[in-house]
């Protein structure tokens, strides 16, 4: 797990780029998994922003998680093209099996469930991701095992 110094380096490397604070937060999520209070302070410090500014950015974008995701991170598309081929039933099946609602993570961090709005595979739904793996024509069985 990267320490504060490593995070600070990661953030400082974005200085001068277009949209740097957003990119810095993206890099933190990619390397650390989620954004902690300490990281917010570092970003605010490096870019000379207020804590409120940075918290505002974090809360705006869906990708900027503030808690760890599960080891098995399941994302199910909830947009219209997937709705038309059964994503609502699929979501219901998965939420019931896991006892988790979208946005929740199991206490042991084994699994987390999240909604996603379109993966751009709209002729092959329902679509989902398990960690970084893309699944088309998804079934409950595939997402759960």
């Amino acid at each position: 797990m990267p320490n504060s110094e490593a995070i600070r380096e990661l953030v400082a490397a974005c200085v001068g780029q277009v949209g740097a604070p957003v990119t810095a937060l993206r890099n933190i999520v990619e390397s650390h998994g989620h954004i902690e209070d300490e990281h917010v302070r570092i970003v605010a410090d490096v870019f000379n922003l207020s804590l409120a500014d940075v918290r505002g950015i974090v809360s705006f974008y869906a990708d900027f998680r503030t808690s760890p995701r599960g080891r098995r991170h399941i994302r199910i598309c909830q947009a219209e093209a997937c709705q038309s081929v059964g994503s609502r039933a699929l979501t219901k099946e998965v939420t019931e099996a896991l006892g988790l609602e979208p946005g929740e993570t199991s206490e042991d961090l084994a699994v987390s469930l999240e909604s996603v709005y379109c993966l751009g595979l709209c002729a092959s739904g329902p679509c989902a991701m398990v960690n970084e793996r893309v699944i088309v024509h998804a079934t409950g069985k595939e997402l759960l095992t």
Binding site: G19, V22, F47, Y61, A62, D63
Partner: peptide
């Protein structure tokens, strides 16, 4: 530049704000 999961950023002025790091 890679976005961060916001549909509204497809609106051009929202996209510009995002590109300014906000």
């Amino acid at each position: 530049f890679i976005g961060a999961g916001a549909y509204i950023c497809g609106e051009e002025t929202s996209l510009l704000e995002s590109l300014e790091g906000k």
